[in-house]
């Protein structure tokens, strides 16, 4: 493994991304907007009647944290994997003395920093408008950290193995759109999980999508009790390992296939 090469890559990626900052701020804006729409819709709903114990200010807290968590866990790179395979960019990476995963990771890490340059100030301003309320505790904040790292890893590797299907099918990235939709519906974007109808709640708790975005937010905003947090972390860890194994499997098979057909 070549860590220094990886770091140089990250620095280079930063530099080129700063040139295109407008583009990335736009992406960040686009991810933020639907969440804000549902924050406002649920706020309006909460102003008319009680929503199983959720008030306007707890909703605001939930959604504003979700904005940041969503940006931190969204794996933009996965959208370029298909193109890199189709255009033959991957050949160049395969002959470099460094795992191609570094290319994905470098733009991931560089990207998060650039996105945060936009999102943190904007969320701060939004906090002034929507007046969120938090009840933070030490344990919650501590458990939030592993859960957000796992959420990022799960979302990244899950999207990565889907995107790698481009070795066989040209338009595999439409599966990423499907993943985004599932996260929207079951990952706490459309509504906090507890506001969903029962059948959707049970689905959300089993499938990986909640653990890619809403779960860390639920921990931090105090939606969950101790048991729910620990069982959730276990499920999250299980899905993350599954996603990683799927990535390894698809990658090894994919490269073999790529070498066999010559790109």
């Amino acid at each position: 493994m070549n860590h220094q090469g990886g770091w140089e890559l990250i620095k280079n990626t930063w530099q080129s991304w700063l040139q295109h900052r407008g583009f990335f701020f736009l992406l960040a804006f686009g991810w933020m907007l639907p969440l804000l729409v549902y924050l406002m819709i649920w706020s309006a709903a909460a102003s008319e009647g009680s929503l199983t114990g959720l008030s306007q200010d707890t909703l605001a807290g939930y959604y504003l944290v979700l904005v940041l968590v969503n940006q931190l866990t969204y794996a933009t790179t996965n959208w370029t994997v298909g193109d890199n395979i189709r255009m033959g960019q991957i050949s160049r990476w395969l002959i470099q003395p460094m795992s191609p995963l570094y290319h994905a990771l470098s733009s991931e890490i560089a990207g998060k920093v650039v996105f945060m340059l936009f999102s943190v100030p904007v969320t701060a301003v939004l906090a002034l408008i929507f007046r969120p309320q938090f009840n933070l505790s030490w344990q919650q904040s501590l458990l939030f950290l592993p859960s957000i790292v796992l959420a990022w890893a799960l979302r990244f590797f899950w999207g990565y193995w889907l995107a790698l299907l481009a070795f066989w099918a040209t338009r595999a990235d439409s599966l990423l759109a499907l993943q985004d939709t599932m996260i929207f519906l079951l990952g706490g974007h459309l509504a906090p999980i507890r506001l969903l109808p029962n059948w959707m709640q049970s689905l959300a708790k089993i499938l990986p999508f909640r653990y890619m975005s809403a779960f860390p937010v639920e921990i931090l905003t105090g939606f969950l009790d101790k048991n729910e947090i620990f069982s959730g972390l276990l499920i999250q860890l299980g899905w993350t390992i599954t996603a990683y194994l799927l990535y390894r499997l698809v990658w090894i098979r994919g490269v073999r296939h790529y070498e066999a057909v010559g790109g």
Partner: peptide
Amino acid sequence: FIRFLNAILNLVTGVLSLTVIFNQVDSIK
């Protein structure tokens, strides 16, 4: 295939979103 998938996803998210919201409240404003 892709257009078909997208159209269905759009429809499902749209209708399901309304169902979820009006499952909680009868009317908003």
